[in-house]
Simulated scan of single mutants.
Amino acid sequence: MDLKQHIRGIPDFPKPGILFYDISTLLRNADAWQVAMGRLAHAVAPAQPHLLAGVESRGFLLAAPLASKLGCGFIMLRKPGKLPGRTVSLEYDLEYGTDSLHIQEDAVKPGQRVVVVDDLLATGGTLAAAISLLRKVGAEVTMAAVIIEILALGGRDRLGVPATALVTYES
C-alpha cells in the first residue's frame, strides 16, 4: 500500500509558504492505519524498547497504540504545564522562536531503552530536543520513528540516533 495516497497536503498551513502534510486522512482510513502501525512496529521492534516516547500531540496518536502493539510502555513529552507532578524540561530553538518540552521526573528509569515517536521529521529541532530531554532523565534513546520525513530539510542529521520514516517527501 502506498501510504502517501492517504496523506493530504494542505498549502499555506499554518502560515503562507508551508505545505502541511496532514496525517488525519491516514488515521481515519482503517486499512491505511493498520498498515502504517504494522510497518512502524516492524521498524521499531528490533530496537527492543522498554518505552516509546510520544511527542505532543500527534506523536501520542502513534506512540500509544504502537507501544501497545509492541508490548512496551508509553510516556509523553509535553508542552509546559500539561503534566502533573514534578517535571524535567528542555528549551529549544525553532526556526520561528523557542519552545520547550517536559517529561515527568520519574517517567524513565536510568538505562531504559526508549524510541521517540512523532508524526513528522522536518528540520529535526523538536525530535533532537526530545532525544536530549530523554537523555537528560537517563534514557538510552535507541532510535526515532516517524510517519513522514521531509528530506530537503536535513533533520535526520541533527538527531544522533538512527531514524526511520514510513514515507518521504523531497520538500
Rank of each mutant, 00 (worst) to 15 (best):
P11W: 08
T25M: 13
R39S: 03
V116T: 01
S89K: 01
R135T: 03
G111K: 00
G160A: 10
K69V: 07
A139Q: 08
A129V: 05
S100C: 12
R78V: 02
V35C: 03
G97W: 10
V141M: 02
F13H: 12
A30D: 12
Q34L: 11
T123C: 13
E170C: 04
L159P: 05
A47E: 13
V146L: 02
P49D: 06
K15H: 14
Y96S: 12
V137T: 07
A67L: 08
T164K: 04
L166P: 07
L62H: 01
G160K: 08
A107C: 03
Q112W: 11
A144W: 02
T25N: 13
E149H: 09
G155P: 08
K82Y: 06
L166D: 01
G73P: 01
P16V: 10
A63N: 05
G73R: 06
A145S: 12
L94Q: 09
H50E: 12
S57E: 04
D157M: 08
R86F: 00
A53V: 10
P110D: 04
F74H: 09
A152P: 02
K136H: 12
E91I: 12
P110S: 09
I18A: 09
Q48L: 15
G17N: 14
G59A: 12
F60W: 06
H42W: 09
A47S: 14
G54N: 00
V88A: 08
E56S: 11
P14V: 11
L94G: 05
G125F: 00
A64M: 11
I18C: 01
K15P: 01
Y21G: 07
V116Q: 05
A67S: 12
L101F: 11
A67E: 03
V88P: 01
L51K: 13
L77I: 13
E140P: 04
Q5H: 07
L90W: 03
G38S: 06
G71Y: 04
A122C: 10
M143K: 06
P65G: 07
R58K: 13
I131A: 06
T98K: 15
Q104D: 13
G124W: 00
T98Y: 01
S68H: 15
R135D: 07
I150K: 14
V161Y: 01
H42T: 14
M143T: 04
G155M: 02
E105C: 13
L26E: 05
K15N: 10
G71W: 04
A128H: 09
Q112L: 03
T87H: 04
G85R: 14
D22V: 09
F74E: 05
V115P: 01
Y21F: 15
L40C: 01
L66Y: 06
P11N: 05
P11S: 14
L134F: 05
L27W: 13
D118T: 09
G97E: 04
G111H: 04
V55T: 07
L61D: 03
S171D: 14
K15V: 12
M1S: 14
K4V: 07
V116N: 00
A32C: 13
K69S: 11
R28L: 07
Q48E: 15
I23M: 01
